[in-house]
Nucleic acid binder design. Structure first.
Lengths: 327, 327
DNA sequence: CGCCAGTATAGAACCGGTTCCACATTTTAT
DNA sequence: ATAAAATGTGGAACCGGTTCTATACTGGCG
């Protein structure tokens, strides 16, 4: 593999001159430039980014840590993320962490080892204390990791309110409410809290069903739905995350109850899967693209050492009406 | 940031000794080891992987190029991929290419620039000629790129046969057949070819509908379905990839035709979305996990320069019966 | 005419690791 | 006892870039 010294020798110039020409920095005479170009052509030379990065102390890589890419919420997030990072000249390193709990720590260590320039973390597993020690470019997705780490979050309280209001307007009286585990600390509790509060305010009965903290898969959701039905709970409205809401609706239909006539559904997340079921699901939509955009913005500000204005970005959610609610 | 020379100085040893200790290579006396360990602790030293990689001429990064991660087939593939690569000590660089056509070329150039050690490509866009020039570790997913590039493919012919037989056994007489673009050269044509052949053999009418080569998104599929219905095509069976089959089924249901009574559906891919629609979709299931495993195996053989046995891996598919077919 | 700013270049030093070579000391084998 | 082998170590050279310093030549201006 030809190196810059080979090019320099061939073009009868110094290595510095070749480097200056490649980077368009400093003076290079026009005919010198020509000579070097020819030498590069002849030797089929490509600069070694590794050597470059060693000197510059940066890699252009960003690690994005998520629990599970198969989940549509995360796959859409990753999709937008890659586009945003590409736009800013970064490459995306994707890290799944469901498999092992110490993987998160290992990935964070990549910051010290100069493998990545920054990390965007969307997982809720590691002890927050671990992050307190790290003073490197990190952005958290929907999770508080201490004052020094910026957060991109959604307005969960508003999300809970919107969902509650939708079900109330549809005349629901007995609402099945699947909620995230209270074991983990997360901003999303606000959504369930607000939902319950408003329901109580309107004297509407709810059946809160608490889910396990570490399961997001179809099989688990199916079990939860079976559990609910086996208990013979009678409901006319459901609030749950996309996949679970869908499973619940399918079971409802299989039991010959009409949607939305007998039972109304409001999903939370609003990923594409709420649009591929029949009837289309009414959903509180998270602004996934915005979340990706803001994450990248905050992170690149951190990396370039720029003074960023807001350490905390809270994005709004909105209701997308489908056909699982009537009004 | 402390470097290896700082550690050496602090521990009163040579840099070579520190390096040997860190890599467990060569001789290091027990008490020297202790001294160095203490120095590392005190300085909070972490080796710079960039410098290491420069010398070793490897990065431990693999680029995985897919058209679109949001697509469940690719998101599941990526999910398995990451796990496999992690297992082998690699990090995964994820590259989406739908956005720009020259992105693929740019990502391939990362091989020359020593940003990645290998590439696994699951896209069908670039001119095959481009690949012929590159003699670096590349594995193709379901695509022939010349003799020197190993391929992981599925047995599409078998897939086409299985789908055809399923629809025939269900008594379909007029089958709507969505097929991939014939512009790109790909092994998947075998599936459509075999499907059509068997249908013709059984004197069953088909409506082949050719899709654009570079669209895999819901909106495009929706358009295609609308197009078919607007043409008033009359069908009692459908063969299409997951998402498209689902869209088509939903539209069928919306037009008050019964599934599977009036129309039968067989999807191709069998990702999780075929299991979350009602009725569950009968599908020809691709062995996504195997594909990921084999891709990584082939690639790591290429990287380590090992003589690999099979340049071409063909994996089997199977039918998973859902409720969009009767028998 | 002499001085200075601008243009142009070569090559040494550096980034932070790894490996290799030279050399010293200890252990084992003959 | 002594050669040979094993153990242990320091530091130079190297990986392939970038930047900095030193040096030289040019042209414009007082």
């Amino acid at each position: 593999m030809a190196g810059i010294r080979d090019v320099a020798k061939r073009a009868c110039v110094g290595v510095g001159t070749v480097s200056r020409m490649l980077n368009n920095s400093g003076y290079v005479a026009e005919d010198t430039r020509k000579k070097i170009e020819i030498a590069i052509q002849e030797l089929n030379y490509t600069p070694n980014e590794l050597a470059r990065n060693l000197y510059r102390k940066r890699t252009g890589n960003i690690a994005v840590i998520v629990p599970n890419v198969s989940n549509p919420f995360f796959s859409q997030f990753i999709d937008y993320m890659e586009a945003e990072l590409y736009e800013m000249g970064f490459k995306m390193m994707l890290c799944n962490t469901v498999k092992e709990s110490n993987a998160e720590l290992e990935y964070l260590d990549m910051l010290n080892r100069h493998i990545v320039d920054g990390v965007i973390t969307g997982v809720h597993s590691l002890d927050v204390e671990e992050y307190r020690k790290i003073h490197k470019p990190i952005v958290a997705l929907d999770r508080y990791l201490g004052e020094h780490i910026p957060v991109v979050a959604v307005n969960h309280k508003e999300g809970g309110r919107i969902a509650a209001e939708a079900l109330i307007q549809n005349g629901c009286k007995k609402v099945l409410h699947f909620r995230g585990s209270t074991i983990v600390e997360s901003p999303y509790h606000a959504r369930h809290f607000e939902f319950e509060r408003i329901m109580k305010e309107h004297h509407i009965k709810t059946y809160p069903y608490e889910l396990a903290w570490n399961h997001f898969d179809l099989d688990y959701y199916r079990e939860a739905v079976a559990d609910v039905f086996s208990k013979g709970i009678d409901f006319d409205g459901v609030f749950a995350v996309d996949l679970l809401a869908i499973e619940c609706m399918n079971e409802t239909i299989r039991r010959h109850r009409k949607v939305p006539k007998d039972v109304k559904f409001v999903a939370y997340d609003g990923t594409f899967i709420t649009n591929i079921v029949e009837p289309k699901m009414t959903a509180v939509v998270q602004p996934i693209e915005e979340m990706a955009k803001e994450s990248v913005r905050l992170l690149s500000d951190l990396i370039s050492g720029k003074e960023y204005k807001s350490k905390q970005v809270v994005l709004g959610v909105h209701l997308r009406k489908g056909n699982t609610t009537i009004v």
